[in-house]
């Protein structure tokens, strides 16, 4: 019986480690990533695709995003790469009817950062950590982040138990190949996901747990 309980608990742990997920935002933009501990990050860009369960109106509104209040906490060398860990801050998506955030590829210009954060706050995620690995040998980087969706006008479209989130993407600083406007040092391309939160915990006696397996 003890073996059965052990196997059952192990199985439940394994299953809970495979969360259901949904891609909800596909985005790209530009960052000025500080490399000094305690510095804040600046990143703005365009949310080009928003998926269910979120609803959006790309004809009537422009959707932009910004990383805000994210601070560099740790820098760890890893061969030719460096691992940067950022803590706190927000991934904010804005909905703006003015369509005033612009990018001019030919001139390599992007509009003022304020044009990416006006309008209404459509979705807000609080970041726990963002890990960015930049490889100076290749001029490329990649990142992922752990976050929780907590606010914005469309937060209620995300079920309560799906408000944990992750994101990933790639970066490049090869400004001799791609346009990276003045004031920024990397181009970013990434996606944000919702993932299923942990199952609710039920209190019970040991006897009741045993009964479950009889």
């Amino acid at each position: 019986m003890r073996t059965a309980i052990g196997l059952a608990l192990l199985l439940s742990v394994l299953l809970s480690g495979v969360p259901g997920t949904a891609q909800i935002v596909d985005y790209w933009g530009f960052s000025d990533f500080p490399q000094t501990v305690g510095s804040g990050i600046v990143e703005v860009g365009f949310a080009i695709e928003i998926h269910a369960p979120l609803t959006y109106d790309p004809e009537g509104f422009q959707y932009t995003y910004a990383f805000e209040e994210l601070m560099l906490a740790e820098v760890v060398p890893m061969g030719p790469a460096t691992v940067y860990t950022y803590l706190g801050g927000f991934f904010n998506v804005y909905e703006d009817a003015s369509f005033n955030a612009t990018y001019d590829d030919a001139q390599c210009l992007v509009s003022d950062p304020a044009t990416f954060t006006d309008g209404s706050l459509y979705l807000q995620a609080e970041l726990d950590t963002l890990t960015w690995i930049y490889n100076s040998m290749t001029g490329r980087g990649s990142y992922d982040a752990v976050m929780t969706y907590t606010g914005g006008t469309h937060i209620d479209e995300i079920p309560l138990d799906c408000r944990e989130g992750m994101m990933f993407g790639g970066t490049t600083d090869l400004s001799c190949t791609v346009c990276i406007p003045e004031g920024y040092d990397h181009r970013w391309d990434g996606q944000a996901f919702t993932i299923q939160g942990p199952s609710a915990v039920d209190s019970s006696t040991w006897g009741s747990v045993k009964t479950l397996f009889r």
Binding site: T21, S142, G170, G190
Partner: peptide
């Protein structure tokens, strides 16, 4: 260029290894 991940939360269909996002 782009990023890739094979984390379980990336919802990668059977028969594929990585999720890519690029330009």
């Amino acid at each position: 260029f782009g990023g890739a991940t094979d984390q379980p939360w990336a919802c990668i269909p059977e028969d594929y290894e990585y999720r890519w996002d690029g330009q």
